[in-house]
Amino acid sequence: MNLFVYTIIAGIMYGIFFGLVGMGLNIIFGVLKMINLAHGDFIMLGSFLAYWLYGFLGINPLVAVPIVAAVFFLLGLPLYYAFVPRLIKSKDPEMLSFILFFGLSQVMEALVVFFFGNNQRSIPSTAFGSAGFTIFGQRFPIAWLITCLVALGAFGFVYWYLQHTRMGRATRAVMANRDEALVSGIDVERISALVFCMGLVLASIAGIFSFFVIGASYPSMGAELTTVSFAIIVLGSLGDPLGTILGGLIYGVAVMFMQSYFSSWAEILPYVLLIAVMLFRPEGLVGKAARSA
């Protein structure tokens, strides 16, 4: 019983973090209808930047959040203008962007190996002190709580942006229908660039806290994270940022239950969930149809 309660609470916290992991991928998809196959590598890059800030400059991961966010926002702009407009004009944007971002992920991995080597890197969870906190009689590391609060903060920001700002309303219009938004005079290009950068920023923030939830970082961790992120956003709903949170929660609780009760099969779960949802409920658990044929 104790284990059961622990598993549920751990699953919820794990899930909130994975909602953040999927969020960046989903808002980019929502606006550009492109799958950023380098998403996991942006998370990896964010974690290495945080590691560097902590290890060499002694900057606490929480303080690192605005720094990393600013770096990734500025990184996003040139990337966007170098690739995306050209891709949108090409004859098969969906497929070609998929392959292009894959190439980008290879470049990023190679660069990180070049500068940091192949070893695992960690920020120890003691970066936030060694205190724990207790919910329902279960003790958890304080780093988990901080990670969850940051993730919830990020969700709040995305919600506020989409619902309560002018740019956000325009963004929702682009998500609903790009062509109509263009016709109605919205600066689609600017919104796309902004959202692309936001997507990278969210990924990098997930990267900062990945040490405390996923464990040590290493250059080739990106591919698996991209697949898991994709499973989560398909589970929630493609192109619906807030559905991502639900997808993350389901994923988190399911993984923790698998680990507790069928540990050797835990790894297969995201893949099976992904295929099952795509085949049987392609619109996701809360969304509208996104599958063709």
Binding site: I35, E94, M95, F98, T227, F230, A231, W265, E267, I268, P270, Y271, V272, L274, I275, M278, L279, P282, A290, R291, S292, A293
Partner: peptide
């Protein structure tokens, strides 16, 4: 074969997931 109902990148990712699932089995 049911995956062929998916289009474009969805198919590609579902196929990727299927190959990894087979590997883990």
């Amino acid at each position: 074969i049911p995956l062929l109902r998916l289009s474009g990148a969805y198919f590609a990712i579902a196929n990727l997931a299927a190959s990894q699932a087979l590997y883990l089995i």
